[in-house]
Design a protein around this nucleic acid. Structure first.
Lengths: 257, 257
DNA sequence: GCACAGGTTCCATTTTATGGAACTCCTGTT
DNA sequence: AACAGGAGTTCCATAAAATGGAACCTGTGC
């Protein structure tokens, strides 16, 4: 069936790739038995390979059917959707900006940090400059923490650079904080990235378990009272949730007419 | 480093997945040495695994750097981009429709056939009904042939169903025709799907070597003189090329201001 | 309560992946 | 022009990882 008997020494990988392809190409996923049968593999082998793919997040299992995993979603919303994502999110960011009056950013994971892909400026004179295109460190930004906490990014090995006196620079302290982030559903940085800058961020999911982007509201520390921070946080989380459901179910316009 | 030593019996798959993840997550690709180093694998192993991934089209090699393969693009433009793709393509389809006066369709591969995801209707009273959502057979449609020819779809095993007297129903004849399609860059169906219906189609590429979609112009045979068919074909190919470059380089609007 | 389909785990077997070294192909250097 | 060096591929004996059959779960329908 395969004209090329594949390079020798990679049988398992070839088989796994076959399964993966089958899964991704099936618009609504594939079941264990279909896969096992189509690939002509023993149940045990299929099971093992799928498990491996699942652990690698290349595949996601949703009550019995296998679907493309996080990695695909991330790629989708980064490449094809880069523009797509920011475009889709734009009205939402605007609304969040209007509601809080502060700077709103949307960022996606990038090895090295969080890349800012969209921004709505603060309505005050004092606010953030344009950050679109910039890459901010994972451990010192609210966005980065949120992505780390929910598995949307991985901390590269090496020292955690100090940005300000408050930057978290030990992996232990960071791990503890990420635990909190997971529990609360959002992250905060309080003058950890830049003196005088505070920010909150919440995760945006596409389909799978790990976020493809983060949404943040940032402001000068001087302007954010505890009260204002609370409301900005709530608004940010709400908007992120909205964006998530927008990505999941699509914009509710243009029917198939 | 890995808390879970992975399920036993899948070392190679795990390693390959690691490489793949590394590649996909790097926005501008990764080099052999980076990969080999980051994954901590011997050169030989890295080489073999990457070759396997490449053959599986999970990865694409472009002068020295490895990028996400076709499978990712297809997923991207199907899921996130489903709407994105048709939206992006819309003005182009309109233009093609206006230029030819005939029905224009955009379709993506689906196991089982080509799914129609967008349509611009003919300006004549006699024309195609709405096909959006329909799935047409690969071997009997111009779109299907184009996808098959360039590797954007794979013919499922089994008999090739006959739709009309002219349907190509042997794999040999089809293979010969696909050879032509590859050479010319477009495909034609002449009353092979439905009596009285002729269509031409051209491939749309995202990044890699195989198409993610096909663009077609179809019309009643009675209306398409040889001359009209030629010009419709040229227009279709031109539009498909345009769409390809749109996908590659993005819409040239909204700079990073 | 039983039988069965759909999956997972176990384990002895052997096929398949492994990595060091040798080799090839380029590119830049003196 | 010859050469050093980096980047990647191929070879091969070895060792280890993948394999599949059977046993074993687990939830469902009858």
């Amino acid at each position: 069936m395969e004209p090329v008997p594949a390079t020798t020494g990679t049988q398992a990988v070839g088989r796994a790739a076959r399964l993966l392809t089958e899964i991704v190409n099936a618009p609504r996923g594939a079941t264990f038995s279909q896969l096992s049968h189509r690939a002509g593999l023993a149940k045990s082998t299929t099971s093992r390979l799928l498990l491996a793919l699942e652990q690698a997040r290349l595949v996601r299992r949703e009550d019995g059917t296998f679907l493309a995993g996080d990695l695909f979603d991330r790629y989708a919303w980064r490449s094809g959707g880069h523009t797509g994502l920011s475009r889709l999110a734009h009205p939402l960011l605007e609304r969040l900006g209007a509601a809080t009056g502060e700077t709103v950013n949307l960022g996606v994971p990038d090895p090295g940090g969080v890349e800012q892909i969209a921004q709505v400026d603060s309505s005050y004179l004092i606010g953030a400059t344009n950050w679109v295109g910039r890459i901010v460190p994972l451990h010192a930004s609210a966005m980065g923490k949120v992505l780390l906490a929910f598995g949307g990014a991985e901390l590269p090995p090496g020292r955690l650079g100090r940005c300000t006196a408050r930057t978290v620079t030990t992996r232990e302290a960071l791990a503890r904080e990420l635990e909190d982030v997971r529990r609360r559903g959002f992250a905060v940085t309080d003058e950890e990235l830049e003196v005088g800058l505070v920010a909150v961020a919440a995760p945006v999911f596409a389909n799978g378990g790990s976020p493809i982007a983060a949404l943040s509201v940032s402001a000068p520390a001087s302007r954010l009272s505890a009260r204002a921070r609370t409301s900005a946080t709530a608004a940010c989380v709400r908007s992120a949730t909205e964006l998530t459901s927008l990505l999941r179910h699509g914009p509710h316009e243009e029917g198939a007419a």
